[in-house]
Design a protein around this nucleic acid. Structure first.
Lengths: 267, 267
DNA sequence: TTCAAGGTATCATAGTATGATACACGAAGA
DNA sequence: TCTTCGTGTATCATACTATGATACCTTGAA
């Protein structure tokens, strides 16, 4: 009913996934009613599905408050993801070196539709919580990493993206004007890197260099976030950018199982 | 049939989860047949469920090889988990400082049944891949973190755990003798910390201090892994242990939403 | 004590998931 | 070139499973 009419589509499974998606940064612990409300499912369905997820170890349940919480299995999913993403294995050692050299937070971002997602993060300084954890998804147009990647796309795609991809205002400084974003992206086309200021949080500067892909299109970027209190654009370009670009360029565009560990559950 | 006979249990959902669990470190990209085989489901069921997971964005599908892979959604699950775990928000800033001071890899481990799971990892040196990514689950008895936590349990529970929890041989040095493990745990009871050598990988030493819980029982630990080539037990106890213990003890046992960011999707 | 809200349990029914089967495609081999 | 095999895809009648209305508990507030 509420789901697609397709014999290759299992509605119950999809509904279960909706329950999982009900959890996010501001909904960390949900009662049965919360779950029902946020998923749009009726009480009974929610009860059955949540119970199933609990039995299967996907949701923890506080025995006294009866609230559901994501279980450790959610972390194991990230673990499995990491092994499956050929970029990560190749990149992590290099990012570690980089963060040690620079002493600032280094991120690996990938393009995920019209958003970017931070895949690896190596925090060096104390920052706000969300900047330290993986899996964060942000509108590509509002991030240095997103713009750096987009800059490697053909002109018509760039234009379409700048015109259509979503933008959300996070700070008073978040660029909402697509013209300005276009300028920023076109500058990145010329420069080969992108810098943005105060897009996600005030007084934060982001620099990003694209990681070359098969056909020139970058699907990932090395990114560095620093405080505007201690850094200027010029200083960043002089002291951080070269190393970020080196790292980004050192990552092979041929994504073939370069991980080298693929068969070592022990490790 | 194959699933539990319970009206509060949705078999289709459980089957879908089995497909997700088919992916791990050595199975990163699976064909439909692989999935069917590894999940134990028949071809049709696998087809329908995998298709559903694909449509719902949980599995990526290579259009040419037709293989399924974990999608970025798996990372978002970790993101949601992090917000829901009250320990993480409190701990991360302290772990960052700690890793900067010590210059060695710092981990936050939590107890997950009879295993530990690494929740946060701050790699400082180049190591093997599995040591750099979160969500790794290991038998508690074979890790310094697990033993440190177990040491805070009442004696009968300690004994039962040492006798019954699983052990897997990872290296030639992995302790398989439960008597030795018992000694190690009892020493940790006395010392308030645990050290282990070559359990998961040769020439690796792990130190861990338990994070005090409500009732004395630790459900988490701060852990540090170093190379036996550059460190000795004595040097670790002198130079690393105190800081690890300080950090562990500074983490409040009252787990109440000390995160302080709980309501900031923007961040 | 009463009431309300949320969690739990039950059940007849409809409808969805089932899995056998058949078809399509490509690779490997003769 | 023609088979054969392994896979992926599509279809369909049937039965079983998920459904959701309802009623029952429990808890905490009024």
């Amino acid at each position: 009913m509420t789901t697609k009419q397709n014999t290759l589509y299992v509605g119950s499974l999809a509904k279960g996934l909706r329950l999982l998606r009900a959890f996010d940064e501001s909904h960390t612990e949900l009662t049965l009613s919360d779950l029902a409300q946020r998923s749009g499912l009726d009480k009974s369905a929610t009860q059955r599905l949540a119970n199933t997820l609990h039995i299967e170890g996907m949701l923890d349940k506080d025995p006294v408050t009866r609230r559901f919480r994501p279980s450790h299995a959610w972390l194991q999913m990230a673990y499995a993801y990491y092994w499956s993403d050929p970029l990560v294995g190749q990149t992590i050692p290099k990012l570690i070196s980089l963060s040690q050299e620079i002493g600032e937070t280094i991120n690996l971002a990938e393009l995920s539709g019209d958003h970017i997602i931070y895949v690896s993060r190596l925090p060096c300084k104390r920052t706000y919580f969300a900047a330290t954890i993986i899996g964060r998804r942000l509108p590509a147009l509002s991030t240095s990493a997103g713009r750096a990647m987009l800059a490697t796309f053909p002109e018509d795609e760039r234009r379409a993206a700048v015109d259509n991809w979503p933008i959300i205002q996070f700070t008073p400084c978040t660029t909402l004007d697509r013209g300005s974003i276009r300028d920023s992206v076109e500058r990145a086309v010329h420069d080969g890197f992108a810098i943005s200021t105060g897009q996600m949080i005030l007084n934060e500067i982001g620099v990003a260099a694209p990681i070359p892909g098969h056909d020139g299109r970058a699907m990932a970027a090395v990114q560095c976030s620093v405080s505007a209190h201690t850094w200027t654009r010029e200083k960043i370009i002089a002291e951080i950018l070269p190393q970020i670009q080196d790292t980004a360029n050192s990552i092979s565009p041929s994504f073939q199982a370069q991980r080298g560990y693929s068969r070592s559950p022990a490790g």
